[in-house]
Design a protein around this nucleic acid. Sequence first.
DNA 1: TATGAATGAGCGTTCATTCAT
DNA 2: GATGAATGAACGCTCATTCAT
Lengths: 212, 212, 212, 212
Amino acid sequence: MRTANKHRKIIQAAIHVFAKKGFFNARISDIAKAAKVADGTIYLYFNNKYDILISLFEEEITTLIQSANDSLKTTTDPRKKLEIFALQHLSLLENQRELAEVLQVEIRQSNIFQNGYRNQRFAEYLDIISTIVQEGQEQGLFRIDVNLNLMKRIFFGALDESSRLWILSAEHDLSIVETARQICDIVLSGITRRVYPRPVHIVAGSMSMISK
Amino acid sequence: MRTANKHRKIIQAAIHVFAKKGFFNARISDIAKAAKVADGTIYLYFNNKYDILISLFEEEITTLIQSANDSLKTTTDPRKKLEIFALQHLSLLENQRELAEVLQVEIRQSNIFQNGYRNQRFAEYLDIISTIVQEGQEQGLFRIDVNLNLMKRIFFGALDESSRLWILSAEHDLSIVETARQICDIVLSGITRRVYPRPVHIVAGSMSMISK
Amino acid sequence: MRTANKHRKIIQAAIHVFAKKGFFNARISDIAKAAKVADGTIYLYFNNKYDILISLFEEEITTLIQSANDSLKTTTDPRKKLEIFALQHLSLLENQRELAEVLQVEIRQSNIFQNGYRNQRFAEYLDIISTIVQEGQEQGLFRIDVNLNLMKRIFFGALDESSRLWILSAEHDLSIVETARQICDIVLSGITRRVYPRPVHIVAGSMSMISK
Amino acid sequence: MRTANKHRKIIQAAIHVFAKKGFFNARISDIAKAAKVADGTIYLYFNNKYDILISLFEEEITTLIQSANDSLKTTTDPRKKLEIFALQHLSLLENQRELAEVLQVEIRQSNIFQNGYRNQRFAEYLDIISTIVQEGQEQGLFRIDVNLNLMKRIFFGALDESSRLWILSAEHDLSIVETARQICDIVLSGITRRVYPRPVHIVAGSMSMISK
DNA sequence: TATGAATGAGCGTTCATTCAT
DNA sequence: GATGAATGAACGCTCATTCAT
């Protein structure tokens, strides 16, 4: 058929152009040229420029959600799951760098919200984290005094901001795997130095600073 | 004096307008109107629209850095310092909501980097975190197997993403203070449930929050 | 046959669409959809959009001319003929409302002339009027001091502008028949040759025939 | 002042361009160039292209109404008034040819109505005619069995269509004055109240149609 | 300094027309 | 012949920036 995967080609081109120039600086003709398509053709597949951004987001994040859910089936250990999730999230930086940049920077601009678009898919993505944490709580592995909504933000924020570091650094002193590992390590066990090596029986100390 | 006032008025107006419409959707005339100044007057104080954004960022973040450094002088405890930093950062949401939105969303767009601007001030702001963590390490309070560059990103990312949650939520189930406390708690001690209660003689008070 | 049918279908669709949206606001795809034909198919029967308008006009006005000429054969009285012509012209409003609108509004735009099209058929249509008037003059019924070219315009203009009234009015206080009658009444009274000089001294009374 | 009469200049330029190319074929840049103004300047004075057309119409027709009302004050004879009106209307062809063309062709396209614009000013202009006729009726000069709404259309239609003849003809066998005179002659003869019944022996048959 | 009218480059979008199937 | 996906020139409109006052 003629249509082939024009829709896909345009999305891919848009990822490329948005990553390079940003949504507002990107011109439709840039995307058209990158997709090897006429300007007008884009409007056969999308309503307007903004619709490209939304569609791009919806489709890619849906893929990520699916992919994450698949990977998470390989284990029942919530701690392991968090690591898998972190690793997959950061791996996007290596495998689909431009998509990672677009998702991180463009999609989460206020503009995407300002235009009345409710970011349902992104919420679903974040909920993968809270679901894992909840499982950990139910299995008695995680503290239950942590707000789940906050927790997913903390974990995702750590991943996201670390991505930014990775993107901005020309050479990376930490690999994706090591970055994921450290993030999980910290979130799971914190950065406070234990006085005694953690035994089977954990004994922590000096929480004074976080109490009033 | 007149000059300084007008410069300030324009920055304030820009914060208001950028927060409401976003940088790209904001018009110079919007800012001029909000600043009660003629369009042309803006160009007596700024080179171009983009320069307003940069100046806004430079000045506001400088204030934040100064303010943070001042507050941090009140203690030498790195754990306390992290808490102070977190609290100040999140407090922006209540005290200068629009500035918080602009800094979070607009400033960190890739565009600001794409245009060749090196975000030195933001790096300084993040370095406050790593400096604190380093102090903690030197004092033997924090683990030393944590990459400082990564650590500052993790902490900032957690704060930043939590801010987003706060901004997007109409009603807040967690206060600024409680949010800051939980973030610090997690980063400092992790979310893993301890098998045995931590030694009471260390910090009794803090246990209430993490035990059942 | 198939061909002729499709040509006709497209013309009919064009009448419908042009009447509704106007020539310039009408899209080829609108016409194609109304004709239940593919966009490209239209170009098998017409050279371009403008050609549809011209063809539409040529064909419809030819039909009108033919139809008028047929009807006019039923009498030799020029006064009766004018009445027949007027009635047929206005009847279009009831029988083919959309065609009437297109002919009135679109066809007579200057654009149709600006594009170099010489409106021969329309001239023929108008000439039916002048021919009738000429006959009336030759039969000694009509004044001969009236310019024929002007006369046909006056009569047609009266009909045409009355059509506009009829089209714009939601409810019609005058029927088609009554409208035609009044127009003919006025124009005929105006051009009818008087046997006797008109009375210089106006005296009221004896208006039985023209008053209610 | 800087603004000067830019509004006026643009209207004048629009009259020129619309007359030459038609509304739809006219480009904003054409008008801007003709007005010796930048494209964007037009949007300081008008909301959009269509608004230029409407404004043009409103202003010009208002002037015509004013001008007509002024001229009509010079006499109380309704017959004379009709002549004055006709003469002024047709004189536009000589004095402001392009305006005449625009008013005739562009303004009265259905599009101007289709867009929800109610042509109040044009109605006022037409009402000048019906007011005159009504005066004639009240003075016993004109027949009273003529629908006023129809009458104004007949008279205006005759003028309007005659204008078209005049515009289309390269050389004019009838002057403006003579055209106005003949139109008035015919219409006046048609609507003038007769003192004596018309001679029956001339054309009895024709009366059936105009008498009850 | 301050103004705000004027500028004009730039771009999103439309749609008549083409042409491979 | 018929289709309708694809094309790309064209244009209305915006808005950052300038500059005469």
